[in-house]
């Protein structure tokens, strides 16, 4: 498995129909002053509808780059990539995904409610509909009542929840999350992970999630994609046998520990090359 640079999310996923996101032999090379950098080399992956896929690997392994390719924020130099059967750029223009960045990136001059309204304003939703949606997604992330607060009046965890609400506000069925909880402390992170689980169960969105943390990846995902750097590539794809209902203490079960172990092995293999 580790020898081949390609991987495919296998099994029942394909039975569910065509993948929502499909990459085949994706290459991305940056030209820098110090020569070309292979951010992605020969990456093939299908993400089925409704899956929660985590990308894990050391810095420079291309996990964020891959996510940015899906979002059409980077443009691959080779291979093919489709999102909902469209090119990433078409999917972006069709507003097919919500993106959650490493930092909340809320606009300080807007209240939480108006921050959530930002994509709605841009996409031309009516005032009444905006109001209804803001209330709904703020409730979803448990921020009801904070609508008129400014971002800088909220804690980091609350800000990040608001940014998730912002990504959920419009009808994108894909959620792309780039280390959204990386800057938060462990306790807040645990709670947000739990909430994210519930949110995913309720909304049935397809989520692609980049992380540094092995427990986080194992706890959240239906599929864990292990990547390694220089060149950035997929070394392993692990399908999680854990049930869909996951209380936090599932992390102490032998199954959990076994998957975590396998992820760690995969990461270590990537380092040794």
């Amino acid at each position: 498995m580790t020898d081949t640079a390609t991987a495919e999310v296998p099994g029942q996923a394909r039975d569910a129909g065509a993948p929502v996101i499909e990459a085949s032999h994706l290459d991305l090379t940056f030209q820098t002053a110090d020569g070309p950098v292979h951010a992605l080399r020969d990456v093939s992956l299908g993400i089925p509808k409704g899956a929660f896929v985590s990308f894990i690997g050391p810095s420079g392994c291309g996990k964020t780059t891959f996510l940015r390719c899906i979002a059409a924020l980077e443009h691959p130099t080779g291979g093919s990539l489709t999102v909902n059967g469209m090119t990433p750029d078409e999917a972006r223009k069709a507003r097919a995904y919500g993106y959650v960045f490493q930092a909340a990136g809320l606009y300080p001059w807007r209240t939480i409610g108006r921050n959530v309204a930002l994509p709605l304003e841009i996409m031309g939703y009516g005032k009444a509909e905006q109001k209804e949606r803001i209330a709904r997604v703020l409730e979803l992330v448990e921020l009801s009542g904070f609508e008129n607060k400014y971002p800088w009046q909220l804690s980091g965890g609350m800000q990040q929840r608001a940014s998730i609400a912002r990504a959920l506000a419009f009808d994108a069925d894909i959620l792309l999350m780039d280390e959204p909880f990386g800057a938060l402390d462990e306790i807040v992170r645990d709670r947000l992970n739990e909430e994210l689980m519930r949110l995913w169960a309720r909304t049935e969105k397809t989520i692609a999630f980049v992380t540094h943390s092995i427990p986080e990846a194992v706890y959240l995902s239906t599929h864990i994609v292990v990547m390694s750097p220089r060149p950035g590539r997929i070394t392993d794809v692990i399908e999680s046998p854990l049930p869909k209902e996951r209380p936090l203490d599932i992390r102490d079960t032998p199954e959990f520990i076994e998957i975590a172990h396998r992820v760690r092995e995969g990461l270590r293999a990537g380092y040794q090359e």
Partner: peptide, 25 residues
């Protein structure tokens, strides 16, 4: 760059980016 990327993910027009992001900031 994150704020600009955010506007890109919304497929916001140049005018929208100007009015909602660049002018306020």
């Amino acid at each position: 760059s994150m704020q600009r990327d955010l506007m890109r993910t919304y497929a916001a027009s140049t005018g929208q980016t100007l009015m909602k992001l660049r002018l306020p900031s």
